[in-house]
Design a binder for these strands. Sequence first.
DNA 1: AGATTGTTGATTGTCAACAATCGGGCCTTG
DNA 2: CAAGGCCCGATTGTTGACAATCAACAATCT
Lengths: 258, 258
Amino acid sequence: MPTSAVNLKLPKRRLDGQAADVLREQILSGRFAPGLRLVEATLADQLGVSRGTVRAALSELAHEGLVSQVAYTKWMVPELSAADAWELYSLRGSLEGLAARLASEHRTPETMKALREAYERLEEAVATERRSAVAAADLALHKTIVAITGHRRLIGQYKLIEQQVRHYIATSNADIADQHELLNQHEPIVSAIAAGDAERAERLAHDHNAPEVRKFAAELAQAIDRRGEILPLPARPRRGGDASGPSTTKEPNQGGKK
Amino acid sequence: MPTSAVNLKLPKRRLDGQAADVLREQILSGRFAPGLRLVEATLADQLGVSRGTVRAALSELAHEGLVSQVAYTKWMVPELSAADAWELYSLRGSLEGLAARLASEHRTPETMKALREAYERLEEAVATERRSAVAAADLALHKTIVAITGHRRLIGQYKLIEQQVRHYIATSNADIADQHELLNQHEPIVSAIAAGDAERAERLAHDHNAPEVRKFAAELAQAIDRRGEILPLPARPRRGGDASGPSTTKEPNQGGKK
DNA sequence: AGATTGTTGATTGTCAACAATCGGGCCTTG
DNA sequence: CAAGGCCCGATTGTTGACAATCAACAATCT
């Protein structure tokens, strides 16, 4: 028997994956602010890997929605608008609804134990009154519900959306609701899942995002009214047009190279 | 005024994107069968581009779920199981539900015209009795509903799922229901959206996928029963374990290189 | 002066060579 | 004869150099 039965995963990861991890951390922490331009060569120097590897990492992050690319021109950290927030929360609502429903139909001793523990951790976090701890526990609870479903594509998709939500929150000092209210919101969801009431669990989990969705939808409507145009949604950027507005062209450059 | 107002877009696409298009077509058409191993160097020769470019294309397709990678070892066309089909249809149900609801809240003369036309094209296709035409029109109708929402992330996500569904259908000679029944299923959805009844539109669009979801869930349960194990769902691949099952190791090699 | 066209520096896109890793066959060994 | 280690070919991972493209500025023309 080689070594042991425990599955200890050595970090035999590829370099581009590691590079992506570092960059993702920088972006999600806000140290790479929205609007920041990312230059392959500069990052390659800073990370100590080749440009091709950095390029692969950036492509990965582009798929995750954490960087955007203008072909042949530049990479940058995207600036998330109210429209983006509306998209993220509305999608998250649907995904969490699906997750709650499936979780309700997937009850085993193990999964219910994990669910209870995740909820208890949220209670403990609320008791400490530390915002970051509460946010983390809230996140973990939802992630637990999603994981219970065993739905690999749902899990992956949820992780992507969740990441972008974190990015939005981190870069827009938008804040979370009353912490004690959180428990009142989550308890019914957990109970419904534990009771196997799929219908109710789905509805509750879905509606859990409704306040944010409405909020950003309202912001969007306001913005549209203000400019008196039709624009059902932010027009996708077109080559020659759109010279409207001051268009705060934020473009902080990377620290001087070398 | 430079030249003219018309936006004539030259196909200034990157090579890896074009390579991805070609490979995607091969996979979706079934010419690259599930289980087929894809070798970077061979594809590079056949496509007339460098290995790095092929690599970028394969990464793109991996994100789309059309190829899978075993790090340091190989790329291959994934074999889709009943579990995959269940995942795809359940996710698609949620996405289509969301799309129908948002579309109901997004009615303008233009969008409703597009919706009507898409439905009429489905009627025409059914009249011709040509399966491929019906399938295409069915797809186009759903795509229209999704597009009406203006929800860019939903549009992207739906395209991904849709693509994998096509892959599953193409490689499993699974077939579509009675063609005339299709109209009876879709008419209420279109009507609900046109009437602005978001609640009903969401429910109908969501339930539209329910038969498939149930079918594949049943197949899954059967498979689990048969092997008498617990496996709530296909265990995610772990380094050392899982030597169970005959695991039909289909591995047709590419045509002789050079 | 205003607009158009050429030039230039910076940045991304592509390529071909080199290094690391894996799977399988062969050999050894008990 | 079975189990385990080692070597080798095949394939992927990584790199540095070269080509294509773009945005901004300078020169030129009307």
